[in-house]
Design a protein around this nucleic acid. Structure first.
Length: 531
RNA sequence: UGCAGCGUAGCACAACGGCAGUGCGCCUGGCUCAUAACCAGGAAAGUGUGGGUUCAACUCCCAUCGCUGCAACCA
């Protein structure tokens, strides 16, 4: 028998990214945030399931593949691999990579469709109108430009379509959705996004089409193979398929057995409606529970301007990681951009922020302190414990105070605030060293005081690194290593065995006389590199 | 056009109706343990604009300008 699995305590998803093109910075942003949240929960000893993946069906994919003279599946495989590459580079620890072209996914979609259909929520109707292939959507005539071009894809002409489609009876769920929003005010976050959804729903819901005709890259509608299931109905269910263990039969029952409902869907604000309106309605129809929370984060700009391939104003995530490293990229986007709001990427600012926080405030702090420990304490942690440090020691007090604040910030997905609390402590350490001037105390032969000071600083650095680990795991790892720990923040087993939260999130646990390693800059100062 | 939000030092953000703060940058000084680092002091906004309520307004109200988001199937 297999060992009984620990139940999932926290399941979260990124979107299943559309494989129309190689991953862009927006996908990376969502995924970095998701990974930080996942790591935060794992740090607390929870069994976490982080789901990401790719959405691979639709006419756009079909046509893209065609234009390159390859099979759609070949194209999908190629692009999906690129996503995975980027996640490796960014040190993303996902648990499931769900692809909508997976055979087991088809089974799940079919079963789900039948449930919804049996509930009489699917019907056939005629749809006429202008269709943008790039959006895979029907457009209102008034939305289009005078040349009948889609407003989003201004280089593409919309096509006139007159076809029969299957529709999902979204309108039926108007009341239940409104009740959901009213009774669970935290379901949609942040509040500004919630308001948008509320006002949208208040305007009255119309049924939406869930199939396309004349398109074969996708799953056929079970009752009518002439029709292909439209991307959203298919893609959202990828979250369910992802829950299947490898040995499971692909049934809804199996999929939902241990991690349903999902605790958090993390998405960009552009796909909020699908997750906050369509998705819960689909789940209502199928009789499934609703996820706990949907968080729509903001969009990124570059140098204050909208990003876009047509304007050439883009950020290549691969290039950014290659030039600056995963921790730097993760830190900038999570700390420097308020999560939920739009934010800007500016390379100048990127470099100054990283140098100020990671190289100078934190990196140099560790470096200078280890230097003193080597000179004054034989490269060992002073023979003290946290308890031996005076109760009025400012670092001790601040160290004790920050953990609950940081936890709260992480739980609210407020990475900026979590970092700010941590860096308050780090800056306090630098100030404390200056005030205490251990080098003078040493010359005055006040060894006891030197040791008190260094212990308090080393321990505060340790705590800071521990609390930063969800955001900059490799950096935290280096700090811990130099402080004489062997545990690895990237290794889940270590988290449970050597880095337990109750112990390491407390101030004062640095083991007396632990042998310190050689000081080596954990984060070298960056220089603004040429693009 | 309708609904929502935003507009605060050079930049990015903060401020239960009660002395407008923080980080980056800038100037001056200090220190020497340290990654030209760190610490201290300073210059710099009177809060888009015009009214109103109040003993007191960045905060509440009205108007106005500017920007952003949403308004049916777009990461």
């Amino acid at each position: 028998m297999n060992q009984p699995q620990k139940p999932i305590h926290f399941a979260l998803t990124t979107p299943l990214y559309y494989v129309n093109d190689v991953p862009h910075i927006g996908s990376a942003y969502t995924t970095m945030a998701a990974d930080a949240i996942a790591r935060f929960h794992r740090l607390q000893g929870k069994n976490v399931l982080l789901i990401t993946g790719t959405d691979e069906h639709g006419q756009k994919i079909q046509r893209t593949a065609q234009s390159q003279n390859i099979e759609p599946q070949q194209h999908c495989d190629k692009i999906a691999a690129r996503f995975d590459d980027l996640w490796q580079k960014l040190n993303i620890q996902y648990d499931r990579f769900s692809r909508t072209t997976a055979p087991k996914h088809e089974k799940i979609v079919k079963e789900f469709f039948e449930r919804v259909s049996n509930n009489e929520d699917i019907y056939l109707d005629r749809q006429q109108g202008w269709y943008c292939v790039s959006c895979e959507e029907f457009k209102d005539e008034r939305e289009l430009t005078s040349e009948k071009h889609c407003p989003i894809h201004t280089n593409k002409k919309a096509e006139w379509r007159d076809e029969e489609n299957y529709f999902f009876r979204l309108s039926k769920y108007q009341d239940r959705l409104e009740h959901l929003y009213a009774t669970r005010p935290d379901f949609i976050q942040p509040p500004s996004r919630r308001n948008e959804v509320l006002s949208f729903v208040k305007g009255g819901l119309q049924d939406f089409s869930i199939s396309r005709i004349n398109m074969d890259w996708g799953f056929p509608i079970p009752v009518n193979p002439e029709h292909t299931i439209y991307v959203w109905f298919d893609a959202l269910l990828g979250y369910v398929t992802a829950l299947l263990d490898p040995e499971d039969d692909p049934t809804l029952e199996k999929a939902l057995k241990n991690a349903w409902p999902i605790n958090l869907h993390l998405i960009g604000k552009d796909i909020l409606r699908f997750h906050a309106v369509y998705w819960p309605a689909m789940l209502f129809s199928a009789g499934l529970e609703i996820p706990d929370r949907v968080f729509g984060h903001g969009f990124l700009t570059k140098n204050g301007r909208k990003m876009g391939k047509t304007t050439g104003n883009t950020i290549d995530p691969f290039d950014l990681v290659d030039r600056y490293g995963a921790d730097a990229v993760r830190y900038y986007f999570l700390k420097e951009i308020e999560f939920g709001q739009d934010g800007d990427f500016n390379e100048n600012r990127f470099v100054t922020v990283l140098n100020a926080d990671l190289a100078n405030d934190l990196g140099n702090l560790l470096n200078r302190t280890l230097g003193m420990a080597k000179k004054y304490c034989q490269a060992q942690v002073p023979d003290l414990t946290g308890e031996a440090i005076a109760t009025d020691n400012p670092l001790k007090n601040q160290g004790i105070a920050i953990t609950p604040k940081v936890i709260q910030a992480y739980e609210a997905l407020n990475f900026t605030q979590a970092c700010e609390h941590i860096f308050d402590l780090i800056r306090a350490c630098n100030k404390y060293i200056d005030e205490q001037a251990p080098w003078s105390l040493y010359k005055q032969k006040q060894q006891d005081r030197v040791e008190q000071v260094l212990y308090a600083v080393l321990e505060s650095v340790r705590l800071s690194a521990y609390l930063l680990a969800p955001i900059v795991p490799d950096l935290s790892q280096k700090v811990y290593q130099q402080l004489g720990f062997s545990a690895d923040f990237n290794n889940p087993t270590c988290l449970n065995e050597q880095l337990q939260f109750e112990q390491h999130s407390a101030w004062g646990i640095l083991p007396p006389k632990q042998v310190l390693q050689k000081a080596k800059p954990i984060f070298p100062q960056l220089e603004l590199s040429e693009e």
